[in-house]
């Protein structure tokens, strides 16, 4: 098990165990963080938007076209924005830090 460090919209940071091979969105959802994840992870709704700690950005696979196009239209979009359903959690990501983005 690897660790995922999550900061909520209220600014509280906590650490959870992340199962390998599932998405960061699923880990957030299983741990009851406030991501709506309406579409269930098929990159359709942008309700699982997170900011990834800058130092981790390079370690993540690049955004696919759908993800990029959805994200760029969000008012809360930043350079380190990702849809957490599109990040598969692996051992390499042990210690990954994400902040849940505002709901919009």
């Amino acid at each position: 098990m690897a660790k995922l460090i999550v900061t909520t919209r209220e600014g509280e940071t906590s650490e959870v165990e992340g199962e390998r091979g599932i998405s960061v969105m699923e880990i957030l959802r299983d741990n009851d963080f406030e991501v709506a994840a309406i579409c269930g992870g098929c990159c359709s709704c942008a309700t699982c938007h997170v900011y990834v700690d800058e130092e981790w950005m390079d370690k993540l696979p690049a955004r696919e076209e759908d993800e990029r196009e959805l994200l760029e239209e969000l008012e809360s979009f930043k350079d380190n924005s990702r849809l957490s359903c599109q990040i598969e959690f692996t051992d390499d990501l042990d210690g990954l830090q994400v902040t849940i983005a505002p709901d919009e």
Binding site: C43, A46, E65, D66, E69, L70, E72, E73, L74
Partner: peptide, 8 residues
């Protein structure tokens, strides 16, 4: 296949 139009 044109997600950029969806949210706006």
């Amino acid at each position: 296949n044109n997600m950029r139009d969806f949210l706006p």
